[in-house]
Write a protein that binds this DNA or RNA. Structure first.
Lengths: 118, 118
DNA sequence: AATAGTGTTATATAATTATATAACACTATT
DNA sequence: AATAGTGTTATATAATTATATAACACTATT
């Protein structure tokens, strides 16, 4: 689901946009051939300047995820398949953590640190 | 564990530093009263300029996690306790995901998206 | 042929992030 | 009193990020 970027997170807006679109690909919400909203719509969806949208799309294009057709639109170039088992593992973990009333930011800090160290 | 920042992640170095130190607090690796390495040591540990270290420490100080004593050093101001159950939940999840050969970046993208949407 | 709806390119400006460097101020030890 | 080891402040510079704005180029429909 594409939504406003968080302007206070410290993470550059164009990186957040890249991440959101990659997440849609991973979850199968955006599939090969699908057309993205127009750059001017994306500008509104993400609540950023058009140039910031273009910077994110440029990055995704360079990484081979999307392609542009001038005068027509942006399209998903390939599916990014992921084992459903992985998604289920993460869903369960998120579900448990939410029961414990922890917030996303804290959860991600621990997640990253445990991954890199533990 | 404090380590070099990732200069290619797109995330500002000072944010990465803040996050790493917060993660240490959450995992109990840094406890109330503990002294941080000197700013000049941190500069080497994180592989950034001293001003970038100071920017991160300033943020942590403003949020009440640490305090500075001029001429002496930086100290942890309070413990950030977290239910061990939460850490165990995350450890198990990370363990499963590593078995599936997924990478951290992909895992975190899914994690965040599932949290905000699923 | 005209037009509405796409993506594309360009210029200017400001804020933020990061580096390099130097000098200063305080504390604890010698 | 001197000194080594801390944090602190200041100045300059460059790259990156983000915005605002305008004009242009291509495609598909009317």
């Amino acid at each position: 689901m594409l939504r406003k970027v968080d302007k206070h997170s410290g993470i550059p807006a164009y990186i957040q946009i890249v991440n959101m679109i990659k997440a849609e690909l991973l979850l199968g919400n955006l599939q090969k051939g699908a057309q993205l909203p127009t750059v001017r719509d994306l500008q509104n969806i993400f609540d950023v300047n058009i140039n910031t949208v273009l910077k994110a799309l440029e990055r995704l294009k360079a990484e081979g995820y999307i392609e542009a057709e001038q005068g027509v639109g942006y399209f998903i170039k390939r599916d990014v398949d992921i084992d459903q088992k992985i998604i289920e593992t993460i869903r369960e973990c998120v579900s448990k953590l939410k029961e414990d009333r922890i917030d996303l930011y804290t959860a991600m800090l621990i997640f990253e640190e445990v991954w890199k160290n533990g």
